[in-house]
């Protein structure tokens, strides 16, 4: 794979790469992609794709309120906050 392609993919994955790791990862990713091309050799055109190991019916649950609230504990885990607001760098 071209290095440029790797950086496009990394950007789509929201992942910064430094030059040194890009070198190493490019080799590993390219090796695996080449290995994936082994799949070209098997003819499975007539088969439907399996999207799920046990997809039978779509099971839903009722949308009911619960008195268990994890909100405070969730906010506690935030890396930076002001009061109960989670902060991020300026968007604009």
């Amino acid at each position: 794979m071209q290095k440029e392609e790797l950086f496009v993919t990394a950007s789509l994955a929201r992942l910064e790469l430094d030059e040194k790791e890009a070198e190493k990862l490019n080799e590993a990713v390219t090796g695996m992609i080449e290995y994936f091309s082994l799949m070209d050799k098997i003819d499975v055109d007539d088969l439907p794709p399996t999207t799920h190991a046990a997809a039978k019916v779509n099971r839903t649950r009722k949308d009911l309120p619960s008195d268990i609230s994890l909100a405070d504990k969730m906010v506690e885990n935030a890396p930076e906050k002001e009061g109960r607001f989670i902060t991020v760098p300026n968007v604009l």
Partner: peptide
């Protein structure tokens, strides 16, 4: 915010996880 995400993931994930995220995205 975008910079925050990219840098966090760069610093927070190990090599094998980065490899698999890149492969999966590709």
């Amino acid at each position: 915010p975008l910079d925050l995400m990219k840098k966090t993931r760069h610093e927070g994930f190990g090599d094998e996880v980065k490899l698999r995220i890149l492969l999966g995205t590709y």
